[in-house]
Amino acid sequence: MSPDGKIKPAKLNAANNVYTAMLALAFGVVLATAIFVAFKCYSQYGSLFSLP
């Protein structure tokens, strides 16, 4: 905290790239699973959420 009152945006840097990668992997897996499930639902039932 400086007395000038000017706040400079801090540059965010990943604390650890490994955990970021793990989060990205988890996000990608979940996204792929969601896409797969959506594709399956649409291909088999013709809609994503509504009942046929």
Partner: peptide, 26 residues
């Protein structure tokens, strides 16, 4: 983060396996 990643992997794998193996009810 580790637990979320691992659980996401297992859960997504299980979901994919279930969705792949479930029969087409339509």
């Amino acid at each position: 983060i580790i637990l979320l990643t691992i659980s996401s992997l297992f859960l997504c794998g299980y979901v994919v396996q279930y969705v792949s193996s479930v029969s087409n009810y339509k």
